[in-house]
Each structure stands twice: as structure tokens, then as C-alpha cells.
Simulated assay, not measured.
Amino acid sequence: MHTASTHTAPAAVAGTAPRIHLVIGPVGAGKSTFVRHLVQQHRAVPLNLDDWMATLFSPDRPDTADMADVMAWYVPRTLRCLAQIWKTAEAVLDAGHDVVLEVGLIQQHQRDAFYARMGPWADTMVVYVLDAPRDVRRERVLRRNAEQGETFSMVVPPHIFELASDLWQPPGDVECAERTVVFVPMAER
């Protein structure tokens, strides 16, 4: 697993540090649509966990409803992708460009582990939180599964949607006090 950098970001020293835009929220909250806006606004490089997982591993995904089997398959692949995404993000940041990360991190302990590996980039990050009522998100996911439009990367089965929704933990007071956190209203996505 990639750990925090030991170098000081050159752009940070010069006062023109590129930024990390971390977009979090439950499945179907509008993250992918919002990411496209951030990418254009900041001329940033998008890095999306679902895209990496779909490209690298979807053909090998177990065809089972047994959540234990699915999670045993999913978790190690996700961790490897996150390590590589962070390595890529560091290279983009070192080159002087912003990154927009849509990498899951739906639980607090996942975000804490991510923040711990950021090293000199921690102070350049803005966390954007998107959410919506579960019934609205469920309808969006069903529609996205059927239409497979611009923000589609893989089918999200109903049982995975429910599991991921149950796992979602919005940032609490401590996380918000330690980070720059922006709660994005539904009207802005």
C-alpha cells in the first residue's frame, strides 16, 4: 500500500499548490455529474474508482448474491485500485494540476486512512459531500442501470445499492473541523 509522500510538493512551496477535490456521498447522490463540473471548472484530472474497477475487474466479478463472496472479491481489488489511484493523483499533483477524486470512501474509517496517506497534500484538499434521499438515489441508480448514459460505469444491483446505502457515513463534526468540507445542495448538481 502506498504511504504518504516524504517530499514537499514543489508547487506548495511556491504558493500555487494544485488542489485535491475529493467528492464523497452514497450511491446515486449525483457525484459523477458533479465531478464533471469540477473537472471543467478547475481543469482537473478526474480519477474515479468505479471506472478503474469496471475496466480492470468487472469481467471477473463473481456472479453471486452471497454478500460474503462479493465482499471477499471486492475489498482487496478496491484497496489495490485506491493505492494506484493515489499514486497517480500524486504524480498529477506533482506536475502542477488539480485532481478530482471520486473514490468511494463512504465510511469514516476509510476516509481517515485516506487522509493519513496524503502527506504534504492534506492542506490542499476540499471535500465535497453530496447526498439525497434514498428513494431519489434508488430511482437514479435504476435509471442509470437501464440507460447506461454518460455517468454509467457498471450496473449496481439493488442489493448492492441497499448495502452501500446502509454503510454510508456522512462526515461528522470532527472531520468537518479538521478539513475543508463543502456540503453541496441538490440544486447544484
Rank of each mutant, 00 (worst) to 15 (best):
P18Q: 08
T55V: 04
T16I: 15
L79A: 08
F57Q: 02
H37V: 13
A65Y: 05
F34M: 08
P59G: 04
G25S: 15
L82V: 00
C81A: 14
L22P: 04
G25I: 11
A72H: 07
R80M: 13
W52P: 00
Q41N: 04
A12K: 08
A12I: 09
V35D: 05
A17N: 10
V39A: 10
K31H: 15
R36L: 07
Q41R: 14
T16K: 15
D66Y: 01
R61N: 01
V75Y: 03
P18W: 03
P62A: 06
D60T: 12
W52I: 04
T33H: 12
H21W: 14
V23Y: 15
R36A: 15
L22F: 14
A72E: 10
A65T: 12
P18G: 02
W73C: 06
L49I: 00
T55M: 04
S32Y: 13
P46R: 09
W73P: 05
A14Y: 01
D50R: 02
K31Q: 13
L82F: 04
M71S: 08
G15Q: 13
D66H: 03
V75F: 07
H42D: 03
A29Q: 08
P18D: 07
G25F: 12
D66C: 01
L47S: 02
S58Y: 11
P62F: 09
D50L: 07
G30P: 14
G25A: 13
P76A: 01
S58V: 11
Y74I: 00
A44G: 06
A54M: 00
L22N: 09
C81T: 06
P62S: 05
R36W: 01
M67N: 01
V27F: 01
D63L: 06
P76G: 01
R77A: 08
W52Y: 10
V75W: 11
M53N: 02
V23H: 14
M67A: 03
P59C: 01
A44Y: 06
D69S: 06
L56Q: 00
M67F: 04
V13L: 15
V45P: 03
S32N: 11
R80I: 09
I24M: 15
M71I: 05
A68T: 10
H42V: 05
W52Q: 04
R77T: 08
T78K: 11
V13H: 11
H21R: 15
W52S: 01
A44P: 02
V35F: 09
P10D: 08
W52F: 11
I20H: 13
V45N: 05
T16R: 15
L38D: 05
